[in-house]
Design a binder for these strands. Structure first.
Length: 228
DNA sequence: ATTTTCAAT
């Protein structure tokens, strides 16, 4: 109930924009499966979903503060929408991060159907550099525009890593957790699709290669040195 | 073998 009330108050603050947010606290099953399916060719996913959990920590005590989901709207990527809501989701985020008695910090975990684009990564890095008392963990189902070696999206993911963001490709246990937490599942059990595991492993390897480009560069240098 | 991608009609 508190979650619903919270989202209604968000709607009042931000106008009709977030009306949908407060009407659908849980994600319909079909929508979740369609958008989070980690298929190789994700044709027609012209939306991106972001399921989030906010944890609030005051001194030694941590509690789950809020959760919910968002999707991109009006040409605004879902990550930037999330940043707009962040102030409301994390009261006191600014101003209590120091060494005072009220030491307050937040930890956000989100599960996104696509990894962030280059611009969103940049904006997130900028934001995080100004909020040292916010920790962000990002799980992604699929990698967005990361096929080219020199893609800006790849660079963006590396920047996020440098900024201290933990980025992970979703595996079975993460899809399962999302199903339990964010989906209007009724009594239904999460049923993995074909290839879930294989795709997750493939994307994990791909992400690891993206985040550790130095090794291959070093190898190339080594080959050059050896005249190979 | 090849296919898509936070749309634009």
């Amino acid at each position: 109930v508190s979650c619903v009330v919270h989202h209604i108050s968000l709607a009042i603050e931000n106008g009709t924009f977030s009306l949908c947010l407060c009407l659908s606290v849980l994600l319909p099953r079909k929508k979740f499966i369609y958008h989070y399916k980690n298929v190789r060719w994700a044709r027609g996913r012209h939306e991106t979903y972001l399921c989030f959990v906010v944890k609030r920590r005051v001194g030694p005590d941590t509690l789950t503060f809020d959760f919910g989901h968002l999707r991109n709207r009006n040409g605004i990527h879902v990550e930037l929408l999330f940043l707009r809501y962040l102030g409301a989701l994390c009261p006191g985020l600014w101003g209590y991060g120091g060494t005072g008695e009220k030491r307050l910090s937040y930890s956000i975990t989100w599960f996104c159907s696509w990894s962030p684009c280059a611009n969103c990564s940049l904006r997130l890095c900028q934001f995080l550099s100004q909020t040292p008392n916010l920790r962000l963990r990002i799980f992604v189902s699929r990698l967005y525009f990361c096929d080219m070696e020199d893609s800006r999206e790849r660079e963006g993911l590396r920047m996020l890593k440098k900024a201290g963001v933990q980025i992970t490709v979703m595996s079975y246990k993460d899809f399962f957790y999302c199903w339990q937490t964010f989906v209007a599942r009724r009594a239904s059990q999460f049923k993995a699709w074909e290839e879930l595991q294989r795709n997750s492993v493939r994307l994990t390897r791909k992400l690891n290669r993206i985040l550790q480009p130095c090794e291959t560069e070093d190898l190339r240098d080594a080959f050059k040195l050896l005249g190979l």
